[in-house]
Amino acid sequence: METKSIAETESEIIEEFSFFPDWHDKYEYIIELGKKLKDIPEDKRVNENKVKGCQSSVWLISDLADGKIIFTADSDSVIVKGLIALLIRVLSHRTPDEILEAKLEFIDAIGLKQHLAGTRANGLASMIKQIRMYALAYKAKQEQLQN
């Protein structure tokens, strides 16, 4: 099966969300997505995997396989977990370059940016930053190995 590109996945998400007339339904869908996401085991829910957010805890783990980064993440907030599921759908199993080039326009397009403004509240922005940091780190590591 051909993997969809980041841009294609983003368009797909934007289209899915256009089916929901109001925010209540959008959040119900987000919660559903979160529930489908695998939990991170308790022993991985440690401080070094934690992404800073004021009102919810987010744990993010990354692995590198075949030059692609695989992200797993979890949160104690079911809504944040749903948002994580969206981010993982777009950004997991990608090369560091793909991640660093991603524009993540879907967040704004489905209205989430406006709805979850304030990085302190949800840690979403912190998580995107952390994902990019991992991508940068893996990229540097790969370049080091090539040299």
């Binding site: 209540h24 009102q55 709805h115």
Partner: peptide, 20 residues
């Protein structure tokens, strides 16, 4: 349940509360 989730859902009903 997480307080943040409740706050976000209440907002969809027009109800403004503080969480955290």
């Amino acid at each position: 349940l997480n307080a943040l989730d409740i706050g976000i859902m209440l907002d969809t009903y027009g109800v403004a509360v503080r969480t955290g």
